[in-house]
Structure formats: structure tokens, C-alpha cells
Design a protein around this nucleic acid. Structure first.
Lengths: 367, 367
DNA sequence: GTGAAAGCGCTAACAA
DNA sequence: TTGTTAGCGCTTTCAC
């Protein structure tokens, strides 16, 4: 089988033809077909003003007839849009989850919310893994931006709070949304109400009669770790309860959850309930409690943050605070696109609150 | 805060500057810096022959010094590469998994294998959801291709066997890899050895002493459904065992698994083991068996296909055939890139075999 | 309101 | 081996 490209023919391997590919229908064809100038067609595709309705209709008819679709590469070349949104995820954590093959809720939900919303606007979402601790992070990010010229960037924790990243994006004047981060200086930021959610979980336990409610905090470098802890502390204070010796810091890993739980449950004023800053640490708490001969929820109640798929499958299924990742990503997409267009933006941070999903890991304290 | 773009300044909203973005460092800057022509720089970036080592080194030095990265849009405009690989997934199934929030192993593993391998080659992977049953599938795909001009496409089941898709890609001369599909006509195809894997599971059960081994087949439109069934049938025949009344067809859904299992376990020659064509149907089989007062694996052994995260969390954890999705996607990326370059390709289909993961759902049959 | 001309950053084809 | 020229498909600028 020979390659019969109109242009220079290349190799043909096993019948697979590869050649210089050109746009089959270009703006020129449409212009010719509609009998107008290129510019008018361009105006119609971009929905610009100053085109008479009848003209617009005529051009649109040609577009539909010929099945014309603008080339993103060409649009990017001359104009200012690439119709590409870049989503930056933490390399280490993502790879870990993938490799463990225990599911990757964050990426799944982010894609679901982000991809679909991008599609609504005619954009595409491109996922990119970035190593927060890499010294060359700025150089790598610069290269990615230079190559792709994305119209917007979505930052997830812990990148949302990495000044190396945010400074660079600011300098490059690329609109970016920080998920899980509060506003500091004009940029787009979205949170899932960490403070309030932690407080809500705490109050929920207080209402059940708990007084010694412990908290396992997350990694320091995540801003949301601090906010969750603050929410717990505020709710405890408001109820006049002491938090003395009831907080341990983990790093979101299972192992750190085990360690924190052991410390908590071996102390003198053993807590009757534990709130963990993510599911892995909550599952570790559950396992350690069992190990130490305690019943969940009989002796210790547990509430976790995130509500990833796994918490439904441990015994007992964990009561958890759901993180509306899909929704918040979808909003983030809306916002960066709006920013890129120069539209007005709402006050920051935009809050998309989660909710408490009741399962079987919470009960009234004994006695 | 005013926008201080060198070019036409646009709106500035809440301090977010949006302007016409141009490449900060272009091939021209490099050429000027190195004192050579554009073409020479182009040759260096593309690693072409006919450049003297010293020249190459000089140019490379300028590239490094200036931090130059080629614009993909510009490369796509004139050349033949977009450095974009498109991965087409089934919209319905993907959305279902995302919404159920039970994890989406296929997408996760595919991204892991595909993205990382793309990165190795300097490519990016773009995920796109396609509705196989959409009448406009060709029109939509054409539009996507026109807009993105991907250098290659990766097809997953059931798209791999959808002639509307494969014909279009062939016509457009875009290299594509079909995952889960056998070779038919020159194109790139990869399988996970469905036939052999099903036979292996069957033999594994036979060795344990089972004789009445049932099979729950998957949806008709998936070519791999037929191959898995065939593997089971072959292994049974080879061992001189009858398959009479031991096969039910499902559609990969949990509900269809329940129905198939009920039919199987209510029959006269009740099977002592069931192989299900995917995890959902296997979990349904497990649940139905319990419901009908049977023990797993005591009364019925179960083996499932896929080995998604959930099978570890049901009781008992299911013995399963692992699908090496990450690996097969990674190979697919290699192959489409090779095809696009016109390199030689291996014989098709490329087979990346899975393996049996032993857990607790298989035992010797009673008596 | 519409059109003509100039160029975006890069590569293919050809010339030297 | 290297350089020159002419676009790729689109948008911007500016003239009408």
C-alpha cells in the first residue's frame, strides 16, 4: 500500500500511512463558500460584535455545510487562546495512589468535574504531574507553559500554596485557580470550607455526647491542614471543651495515622472520638483502635475527611466528610476561563462546601 | 494594578492580568544568539541529521541559556507533529464509574501508563470521552481531530472494535492503537491475552478439582467478551468437561451478574465454580451466592476478571485476573508514536498478559 | 459593518 | 552542511 498523500509522501509501515497532515477545511474554504472575507468568518467563529445577523447566518450555514472546525494550533498562533486548561497535580501522591491501585478519587473526580466543564466551554483539560519538592519546578513549569500556552491553570494542594508556582504564573500573567487555598492577593481561590466542615464534624460529635474529641492533623505544607485543625479547635472552644493533649500531627499517610492514633489512645485522657484529616489516617485509626482492643464505634468514634471510595469498605464503614472535588474543579474551570476572557469575578475565595456522610463509625460515648 | 503588557493591554480584573501572550523566547532569539539561521536551530531541536556536532553544541548552548522551548502550536502549524496523543474512552461507562464514586481503575491505570510514557517522548495524553452509540460519532470525532490534530489515537474497548471510529481514523491517516482488539488489517492492536487468561483461570479451577465450572460472559459488543468465553470453552474441552448449561451472558453490570448467577445456581447441574468476565459481575455472583445460602468459596468458588480495587474489599476478597492496563497503554503510546514517525512496528497484536491474583474466593469443591 | 494586509513561530522545500 | 524562502490557518490592526 503506497501513501497517496497530496503532499510529500512519507513512510508507509504495515499499511499505516503517515504524512504531513493539513486542515481539510479551513477558514478560507468557508470564506469562499460564503462569499465573504476571512475576517468575517473569524468574527462569526468568535462570536464577535459587528456582524449583521444575516451575514452571520450565511457564514454559519457554510460552516455547518463544510463541517468546518477551527484549528486550535492556528488560533493559538495568532490569537490569544489555546483552549487548553492545565491541571497541576502532586506527582508523588498521585503516583502513589496509582501504584497502590486502590483508586485515585481525587484525580477521578477532578477529571470528571474539570473535563466536563471544559467541554462545555469548548476547552480541554490537560493533566500534568508536578513534583512540589523539585528544585527545577519553575524551569519545568515554564517549559510546559511555553510548549502548551494554556489559557488557564488549576492548582491542587499542595501546589495551591507553593509560591514558586503561583509567583511564576502571576509573572506569566496566566489566570490560575488555587483549590484548597484561601485568597491572598487578587488570585482565584476555592475552598471546600475546611474550617467549617471540621467544626461541623466536631459539633456533630459533641451533640452525640462526646467531650474528649481528638484531632489528627494533616501535613504542614497543606494550608487546608491548618484550617481543618482550626475548625476543630474553634468548635471545641465554643463548647467549652479542652483540647489539651488531643491533637497529633500526621502527614496524610496511613503510617502517620497509626502513630498518631497510638499516641492519642495511650494518653491519660483517652479520647472517645477521633477526627482524622483524611481517609488513610482515619482507616489507620480504625485499625489501631481494634488492635488495642477497642471497639469502633463503641469505645472510639471516628470521622474522616475526604470520603474516598475505600472508607465504605472498611469495618465499620466510616462516617466521613465528603469533599466535592468534581464540583469545585468545575467551578475552577469556569473561573479561569472567565478570568482569561476578562469577565468579572466573584469575591474570593469561592466556597463549595462538602457534607457529612453518616455511616457506622460514630456512636454515643460509653457511660 | 495596571496591565503592563508590551502588547495591547486587555482587561485587568481583580488584579488578574490577561493579555495577548507571545512566546517570550522564540527560535529567532536562539538563532540570533547562536549566530545561525532559523533552520539550523530547527534541525537541532528536531535532532535531525546534517548538523555538525560543534554547531549543534553551540545552538544547544543558546537554547539552554535562553531557556527556549518550542511552541507546540507553531510546530503543529508548519510541521506534522502536535505532540498530542488522544485517548478515547467510553463515555457512558466512565461517567457511571465516576458518578458511583467507586473508583475508576481503568482510567487511573490508563492515565498512569499513558501519561508517563507520553512524557518520556515529550508528548501529552489527552483524555476524551466518546459515546459509542452516538449517531454523530464520526462528526464529533472529526471535529476533535480537526481542532487538536493529534499525532496518534488510543482506542479502548468498546471503541477499539467500532468500525465507525476505526474507518475514520484510517481515512484520516492517523495512527491509532486498539486496546483489547485483535489485529485485522494492518493497524496497531494490543490485547491482554483474554483467551489465554480465561483458559488459565479455568485450568486453575480444574486443578483444584472443579468440574462444573460456569462462565458469565460480558457484553456482546466487546470483542474481548468472546475471546474470554472461548478461552474458558477451550480449556473445558481440553479437560474433557462439558459446558452444557454453564454459560450465561451478562453486560458487565452488577445487575446482569446477579441475574446470570441466579440462573446458573438454580439450574439442575449447579456449578461449583464461576468465572465472571469482570469484577462487578463477580461481586454480584458473590452476593447472590450468599443470598441463596451458599458459602464462598465453600460451596461456590469465584474468579473475576479485571482486579479493580473493590474486589479486595468484599467478603471474601476475590481471586482475580489482573489486567495490566497501565502497561498495555504504555505500549500503545510507544506504538502510535513509532507509527507516526514511520518506524518499523512489531507483529500484531501485541500481547501484554495479565496474571492470576490468588485471594480467598477459590477452594476445592465439596466432597 | 466589512475587507485587506501583516504577521504569529515554526518547518518543508529548495538553493547554495 | 547550512541558509533562504514560502507558507501553515488564524487573528489582529487598520483602512474603507
Amino acid at each position: 500500500m503506497r501513501c497517496r498523500s497530496r503532499y510529500r509522501s512519507r513512510l508507509s509501515v504495515r499499511g499505516i500511512c503517515v504524512g504531513r497532515r493539513r486542515q481539510s477545511v479551513t477558514i478560507k474554504h468557508v470564506a469562499a463558500d460564503a462569499g465573504v472575507s476571512l475576517q468575517t468568518v473569524s468574527r462569526v467563529i468568535n462570536n464577535e460584535a459587528n456582524v449583521r445577523p444575516e451575514m452571520k447566518e450565511r457564514v454559519q450555514a457554510s460552516i455547518d455545510k463544510l463541517g468546518y472546525v477551527p484549528s486550535i494550533a492556528a488560533q493559538r498562533m495568532s490569537g490569544s487562546r489555546s483552549y487548553l486548561i492545565l491541571a497541576l497535580n502532586d506527582r508523588e501522591r498521585t503516583m502513589e495512589n496509582w501504584k497502590a491501585r486502590e483508586g485515585n478519587d481525587w484525580v477521578d473526580q477532578m477529571l470528571m468535574g474539570g473535563m466536563l466543564q471544559c467541554a462545555e466551554h469548548g476547552y480541554r483539560l490537560l493533566l500534568e504531574l508536578v513534583d512540589t519538592h523539585d528544585d527545577n519546578i519553575q524551569r519545568e513549569l515554564k517549559a510546559t507553559i511555553a510548549a502548551l500556552q494554556p489559557d488557564g491553570v488549576i492548582l491542587t494542594p499542595p501546589h495551591s500554596d507553593n509560591p514558586l508556582i503561583t509567583d511564576l504564573l502571576e509573572k506569566q500573567k496566566i489566570p490560575f485557580a488555587r483549590i484548597g487555598s484561601r485568597d491572598n492577593g487578587g488570585s482565584i481561590s476555592l475552598t471546600m470550607g475546611d474550617n467549617r466542615m471540621a467544626a461541623m464534624a466536631t459539633r456533630y460529635l459533641i451533640e452525640k455526647g462526646h467531650e474528649r474529641i481528638a484531632f489528627i492533623a494533616g501535613a504542614e505544607e497543606y494550608a487546608l491542614s491548618h484550617r481543618r485543625k482550626q475548625g476543630w479547635r474553634d468548635a471545641m472552644a465554643q463548647a467549652g471543651l479542652s483540647t489539651e493533649g488531643l491533637c497529633e500531627r500526621g502527614d496524610f499517610s496511613y503510617a502517620s495515622g497509626e502513630k498518631a492514633t497510638r499516641a492519642l489512645l495511650s494518653g491519660s485522657a483517652r479520647p472517645t472520638a477521633i477526627i482524622a484529616s483524611n481517609d488513610q489516617m482515619a482507616m489507620a485509626a480504625n485499625a489501631v483502635a481494634h488492635e488495642m482492643g477497642m471497639r469502633v464505634p463503641g469505645d472510639v468514634s471516628i470521622i474522616s475527611f475526604d470520603n474516598t471510595p475505600v472508607v465504605r469498605f472498611v469495618q465499620p464503614p466510616l462516617t466521613a466528610i465528603d469533599q466535592p472535588i468534581a464540583e469545585v474543579t468545575s467551578r475552577a474551570v469556569d473561573l479561569v476561563i472567565a478570568a482569561h476572557r476578562g469577565d468579572d469575578l466573584p469575591d474570593m475565595p469561592v466556597v463549595v462546601e462538602g457534607r457529612l456522610i453518616e455511616r457506622d463509625s460514630v456512636a454515643r460515648p460509653r457511660g
